[in-house]
Amino acid sequence: MQDLRIGIIGVGQMGADHAERVVRRISGARLVAVSDPDLPRANALAESLSRPAGIAGATGSAAATGSASAQTGSSAAGGIRVIEDPLALIGDAGVDAVIIASPGFAHAEQLMACLEHAKPVLCEKPLTMDTESSLRVVEAEHKLGRQLIQVGFMRRFDPEYAALKQLLDSGELGRTLLLHNVHRNKSVPETFRSEMIVRDSLVHEVDVARWLFDDEIARITVHAPKPTSLVANGALDPQLAILEMASGAIADVEVFVNFQVGYEVRCEAVAEKGSATIGLGVDVLTKRAGQWGGAVPEDYRARFGTAYDVEVQRWVDATQRGEIDGPTAWDGYAAAAVCTAGIQSLQEGRPVEVEMARKSEVLG
């Protein structure tokens, strides 16, 4: 089986990380093209990743599609092409599958283009910026009669989360009643506003709750306690969300994106016969000079690097089989619906019902 030829849209921190991952650690795939509005950044990344011997062969692919790419405003950087227009990258005959790591506002158009060209796609969250456009994406995919979209809720691929899911599904602890979640970042850019904490950070725990409970979220309340004084942009940070499941179970989530200490993600499941906690970071616990402790990661790449590797490898393997192996477009739509209600709750200071289409009516 030939390697899957991957194009990546958006090469900021996340996209560049995925590009390095595909080149260095993923088997059965090779990076052939990138697209980003910041052309110098895209060219520098393509050049740096084209140097190792492991990328050998991409030059031939670029040459084979050279005349087409010349018409779409692309340039070659040592074998990995830089295509200025992301829609041209999606439509390029030399690209088999796409990773979307662009800002959320661009996702709807780019996902629709992937469906139009029948290109399998791994889309970083959010699926889109709102419930309505997410539902349109789900409906468009359904009309094709084939699932092409996988959403980047990578916590499902983290070994600790996977082990927790397996334990809860086994029934060993009885029914799961509560989830307690903590999601903290060391810092975020000043442009990261209050609603983005819901849409871009809390969204992970929204998917975790749906996945671990195997249930939909019926109501969300987002509380804004006294904000940190260490952020000048007026963001309501931290936030505390209460997710009420359709079954009556409850999940709470603390999201604090300017925690200053480091990156920390924890989850405790409380069940009828016991509890289970992950994300304690106790792999390396030191005691010395009358003190004990350990290191707190700087960002998500240290905590979830393995999860991203597993996610992308399984996506590649499934794509080669003509399948997907992870969160679907429906999962992305459900998360968007919850976050839309969450932003309304944050703005209005009250619980908000989650409005969603019936899955059976949309997907049959």
Rank of each mutant, 00 (worst) to 15 (best):
N185K: 13
G248R: 02
F256C: 10
A276N: 03
I9V: 15
K359M: 07
F192L: 02
Q166V: 14
G262R: 10
L212H: 01
A329C: 02
A218E: 08
E124V: 06
F192H: 08
Q150R: 02
A335Y: 06
D200F: 14
G279N: 00
S201V: 14
V203P: 01
L31R: 09
E244S: 11
I55N: 13
Y300W: 15
D252E: 14
A29P: 02
V82S: 04
I149N: 05
D237Q: 10
R193Q: 13
S102T: 07
G294P: 10
Q344N: 12
S134R: 05
P225H: 06
A46L: 03
F259R: 07
V203S: 08
G262E: 07
G274W: 07
N181R: 04
R199W: 07
V253I: 15
I149M: 09
R155S: 07
P52V: 03
G12E: 02
A249H: 03
S170N: 09
M14H: 13
Q313K: 11
A113M: 06
A271G: 06
A337R: 05
A241D: 05
E355Y: 07
A76T: 14
R321T: 10
I197M: 07
R314G: 03
V137P: 01
N185V: 02
A337H: 09
E160D: 11
A271V: 05
R146M: 03
L115V: 05
Q147Y: 05
A108V: 00
V261K: 12
